[in-house]
């Protein structure tokens, strides 16, 4: 099949960007979307033009490196699928595709389709962990975890941190991402001691990173390649309220 691509080209964070048109010829339906771009890039290099930059690594839908908008949809039209796992059999001859980077204040464009998602790491650094230093753990089976909790936790922990949720959200909120981590740790017995403090710290950091507020639109859930449910945001909000009420700093006397 033959396709027409309009791709966002931007030399660096400060440069102005623009859409540039490319033809993708003889695309096989077995190719992945990124393999189609590889072929386009090989053609560009042969013509002496700089290839289109895009992030990718595992190409198995697990590392969260890849991701851009295809005709306005994060990771393209196939639900529950990262762009690296999207195969060309879902397109047809003559399709016109517009490829753009994630757009959010917290994710500045680095080049072409590549953005800086460092803000996500900083949200985790603010509190997205269980504070247990190496060597201080008790026996694994000494902490029974009901299967149901383990499953809810795992569903949330499946988040790959790709940023599609932010890109799809009209508010550019990081609620699905943050809620997923809060849920992953918050439903496990190991996560209880820091549960409320964690949510406060992470939410504050998300705000500092210039992510917007969640207004329950649900676009994030619709594009999430790992199908993280909106429920994680509800869990986060509940813990946030509880935390704001009860997890205030201890007075000097009680310490």
């Amino acid at each position: 099949m033959n396709l027409t691509l309009h791709v966002w080209r931007q030399k660096n964070e400060r440069a102005a960007g623009r859409m540039v048109r490319y033809d993708a010829r003889d695309v096989s339906e077995h190719m992945s979307f990124l393999e189609m771009l590889d072929v386009v890039n090989e053609g560009l290099i042969a013509k002496g033009e700089e290839p289109i930059a895009f992030d990718h690594d595992c190409r198995e839908g697990i590392c969260g490196s890849c991701g851009f908008m295809v005709n306005g949809i994060a990771h393209g039209p196939q639900p529950g699928t990262t762009i690296c796992q999207l195969h060309m059999r879902h397109f047809k001859n003559g399709d016109v595709l517009y490829l753009e980077p994630w757009r959010a204040k917290a994710f500045p464009v680095v080049r072409d389709l590549v953005v800086d998602r460092g803000a996500f790491d900083r949200i985790i650094a603010a509190g997205g962990f269980i504070s247990v230093s190496t060597g201080s753990a008790i026996d694994g089976n000494a902490i029974p975890v009901p299967k149901r909790n383990a499953d809810i936790s795992m569903d949330a922990a499946a988040c790959i941190g790709c940023g599609a949720c932010v890109a799809a959200c009209p508010n550019a909120a990081a609620a699905l991402f943050t809620g997923a981590k809060i849920t992953h740790l918050g439903v496990l017995p190991q996560g209880q001691p820091e549960r409320y403090n964690r949510v406060l710290k992470m939410a504050v950091q998300a705000k500092e990173e210039m992510f917007g507020n969640c207004t329950n639109i649900g676009e994030c859930e619709a594009v999430c390649p790992k199908l993280i449910p909106l429920e994680v945001i509800a869990r986060m909000n509940r813990d946030f309220i509880k935390g704001s009420l009860f997890d205030r700093p201890l007075s000097a006397a009680s310490e």
Binding site: V132, G135, A137, D139, K147, S153, M154
Partner: peptide
């Protein structure tokens, strides 16, 4: 033990 304590959601029995 370390990974469980960190909250790694390993598969569980009922």
């Amino acid at each position: 033990d370390q990974c469980v304590a960190q909250g790694v959601p390993f598969a569980r029995e009922y």
